[in-house]
Design a binder for these strands. Sequence first.
DNA 1: AACGAAACGTGACGATCCGTCAATTTCTCC
DNA 2: GGAGAAATTGACGGATCGTCACGTTTCGTT
Lengths: 207, 207
Amino acid sequence: MSETNVASVPPGKREQTKAANRQAILDAARAVFAELGYGATTVRDIIRRTGLASGTFYNYFRSKEEVFQALMDESALRIRPRLKEERLKAKTFEGFLHGMFAVFFTYVLEDNHGYEMMRANTGAIRVRMDTPEVIAGFEELRVDIDSGIARGVIPDVDAEYLTASLIGIAFEMADRIVTRDDPDPEEAARFATELVVGGIAKVAAGG
Amino acid sequence: MSETNVASVPPGKREQTKAANRQAILDAARAVFAELGYGATTVRDIIRRTGLASGTFYNYFRSKEEVFQALMDESALRIRPRLKEERLKAKTFEGFLHGMFAVFFTYVLEDNHGYEMMRANTGAIRVRMDTPEVIAGFEELRVDIDSGIARGVIPDVDAEYLTASLIGIAFEMADRIVTRDDPDPEEAARFATELVVGGIAKVAAGG
DNA sequence: AACGAAACGTGACGATCCGTCAATTTCTCC
DNA sequence: GGAGAAATTGACGGATCGTCACGTTTCGTT
């Protein structure tokens, strides 16, 4: 036997360069998006920075939009495990919320590279893309809320509106946090958590 | 005296067609944005629908982005008076919030033409533009919150985070409302209002 | 090691869009 | 009416788009 007694297949030069090229394009795209904004960047801007030929880009992605989606998915894949971990160790609904907000705000701050990407420098346009991975994250949240309501840990309120509110608060507050002089994700998470916890109680009480 | 005994200047053909052309471009843009999505539409798509020459577009707007901004401003100008009215007749903070949310959700529903504009049909990209008029609306809200806190009508919480939360809740909930089978802006406004009112109380209480 | 097939990178190509501008038409005012 | 300002027009150079035929690299086989 020459090789592959291990289950994993040896890389193979073909797949190596393929993965390298794909990553090179993603890295270049991240940089260019952050520099020019999503709206102003062109496929050529991205591929130029990699040294590859223009046609090669289309072997990996179908459009600028699709690279952006891949980058969003990358982010979502990085943050979802942290959210899951937080979710598992939460004993109370309040702890659950606080963990989620804190992880999200912290991530956005340490990553703001990727967050600035969503702002088109020209004008005041903001782009947001709900990719499959992002949506999956939203749905995990939604499932936990449904389950929390079913188990009586969360008061019986409109789960869709609640999920939407959490997402809206998280994204809009994140936007303010990254522009603060001395951002404090912990403080922000406390604010958001108490807002929601106190709010739900009142919603459930029916006024 | 031939004319203009009234203070108002007679229209004048020049200004007439100018206003007509501008409006034609705006109307065409609204239709095309709603049809193709913001990302996919080109200046040519817009101008083609008006029958004007391509060069004429640039006599009125500098770019696709600027037409979009004009459309957003139009919307903001339409809704701000309604919000102001609601704000003036509000006796309590709760009434204030409820009025704002109800007006906003109702507007979004009856206008969803303009709301769909923000969705790029291709993929799941959403664009949002905070134009001067929109920002002015946000700041009016912020000012009222600051004032409410100063007068003791609103508990003393972080006004920036509170404003952000309101905006986040409003936009994200609006997104869900327009996709519901039988949308009820009143119910949604009640949810949002109680969420915030109850939440603020808890935030102010400090846990 | 040599070979053939398949996969991949390359850059040129036609189509389209961008923003500009000189020529032309339309309006205003004397 | 007619001079002059203002606005419209469409063609132009520059650039991007997505495709495709071609050349090169890799892989499995003999």
